[in-house]
Design a protein around this nucleic acid. Structure first.
Lengths: 107, 107
DNA sequence: TAATCATATAAGTTTTGGCTAATATACGTA
DNA sequence: TACGTATATTAGCCAAAACTTATATGATTA
């Protein structure tokens, strides 16, 4: 699943909000997701796996618990894409010409 | 459909890449999408509608043609959300404390 | 006006992703 | 070791969204 697909889901975005503030144990996230979205522990665990696999979250074992924190690297693809499409409308014409000259243009 | 859902789809992202460079007529986009994704004119038109409805694209009539260009406002929600989650891990602790003090924190 | 081109819309089908329920795994404790 | 707690995985179901085919709308041209 690519970076954009990951961010599509409102539950996953909420989870990222949580773990971006501080480390959260899986169980803590389950409580929030259950309260706010009415979904099960299983659903949360599956979402956490998606976040891990796509490089948006790192896990640390703490006994029986798993503590999640944000892994910024997951955002790289999103950042790069946004930067790419923005280059063409948010850059001064001359600067854009130079960018393209240097071969960093996407077309 | 919210901003993240819009960017989920690879066809729509490709379309945004195209119209971010310069205005494109619907027909031009159809040709690219057909070549790169093997989808029909109808599918493209439906994607264009999504982009319009979500504020990612503006249309201009040119006779029988419709010319599309990027509408940056569609990106606002994405930008704001990214900024929000980033605040917590990319800000100096003191600066973050001040931010929260000012009531701009998300929790 | 008829025919054609460019694009949009509608209806119906297929695919994908997210969910639940059930089960497995791993740790902690009596 | 046995049991309870915390989390992950599997299988199968369902809904949303993306697609195709067919059709409608509007502009251009003969």
């Amino acid at each position: 699943m690519n970076a954009f697909d990951v961010l599509c889901d409102p539950v996953r975005r909420r989870m990222l909000e949580l773990i971006s503030q501080r480390e959260h144990a899986s169980g803590e996230i389950v409580k929030v997701a259950e309260a706010e979205f009415g979904i099960s522990q299983s659903a949360v665990s599956q979402h956490l796996r998606v976040l891990r696999d796509a490089g948006f979250a790192k896990v640390r074992r703490d006994g029986a618990r798993r503590c999640y924190e944000v892994d910024p690297s997951g955002f790289d693809d999103v950042d790069n894409w946004l930067k790419k499409v923005r280059k063409f409308w948010e850059t001064e014409p001359e600067a854009l010409a130079i960018e393209l000259e240097r071969g960093s243009g996407s077309v």
